[in-house]
Write a protein that binds this DNA or RNA. Structure first.
Length: 213
DNA sequence: TACCAGGAGAAAA
DNA sequence: TTTTCTCATGGT
């Protein structure tokens, strides 16, 4: 398994090059983007973030200072704007209560993950996006694209629960933040390039890599 | 026109 | 406890 994951990683990196994720100015903006991108195309998230930036300097304080309907109007392009308004406020309140980024940096990864998951609106994938891309912890993000790609390659069935898959990837690959960062970004890039359809993907070159395993 | 997007939580079965 | 429903804009 270890070697197979490394082969796929090498092929993706060779095909697309470094993706330089996460596209954001600072760690808190990464967290905001992680919530806004839930089941949403990044193009729409960019519109929402740009819209936010035109009204406020993105910070936990500034988000909490906005009225719910004001915040919802600003993030409207990202969809689910009423739900995401609540989620952004929950996240911001937690962030302030915890003492901000510097204070949180001192926390153990497991503890930090647990408190993130306790916030209403932060599920496993969003928590792991935040841990990897904002706090730079070696946590492998499992998303729909990851399931789809590796189940096509025959390495997983695809219906495993989140923690099972995360554990599988984290034990098969060395705990390396820059590799985990790049790997997830490359999987998303590849999905956008050639695997945009949920069904068969016969033209996808990665699928043919399965023959090498 | 229909489908899907860098999910999560609540409700129903 | 597992499945189903809801949230919603915007691009293809």
């Amino acid at each position: 398994m270890q070697n197979q994951l490394e082969i796929v990683y090498a092929r993706l990196l060779k095909a697309y090059g470094p993706q330089h994720w996460w596209p954001a100015d600072d760690p808190f903006e990464v967290m905001v983007g992680a919530v806004l991108t839930q089941n949403t195309a990044w193009l729409n998230v960019e519109k929402a973030i740009n819209s936010l930036k035109q009204s406020i300097d993105i910070s936990a304080e500034a988000i909490l200072a906005l009225a719910d309907d004001e915040l919802a109007a600003l993030i409207r392009p990202s969809g689910y704007f009423n739900i995401k308004t609540r989620r952004l406020k929950n996240l911001s309140q937690w962030f302030l209560d915890a003492g901000g980024f510097t204070e949180l940096l001192g926390q153990d990864t497991g503890d930090l993950r647990e408190t993130l998951l306790s916030i209403n609106g932060i599920g496993p994938e969003t928590a792991d996006d935040i841990l990897l891309y904002a706090f730079e912890r070696p946590v492998f993000v499992i998303d729909l694209y990851t399931r789809r790609l590796f189940s096509r390659l025959g390495l997983v069935s695809g219906d495993e629960d989140y923690e099972t898959l995360r554990h599988l990837f984290e034990t098969a690959m060395p705990a390396n933040v820059s590799i985990y960062n790049e790997y997830h970004a490359l999987i998303v890039r590849h999905a956008k390039e050639t695997c945009s359809k949920m069904g068969d993907c016969r033209h996808c070159w990665v699928e043919s890599a399965g023959a090498e395993f």
